[in-house]
Amino acid sequence: DLKATVLSAASPGEQKEMLGERLFPLVQAIQPTMSNKITGMLLELENSELLHMLESPESLRSMVEEAVEVLQAHQAMDTSYK
């Protein structure tokens, strides 16, 4: 599994990629329709938070729900400007 020591050996971009590869299937299980964008959003968080989410399904779920709300608000804002 993914440990902070493994991550620290990788470049910042690779770290996000490694975390994303692990988060994506979990996000997909919670919210299949927007999982690509949700994972993208989550990857903007600190790596330590992402590691915590990988270990705690409850925090992952609440972050995904939060991300969905932010995404929907963002999309609503986008379309109202058009």
Partner: peptide, 26 residues
């Protein structure tokens, strides 16, 4: 700024390089 709000958030695609994180390590 605010010119790229439409492109946010970047999409993560498994198996592809992650491009959403800006220019730390080009």
């Amino acid at each position: 700024n605010g010119s790229s709000s439409v492109n946010w958030p970047p999409e993560f695609r498994p198996g592809e390089p992650w491009k959403g994180y800006p220019n730390i390590d080009p």
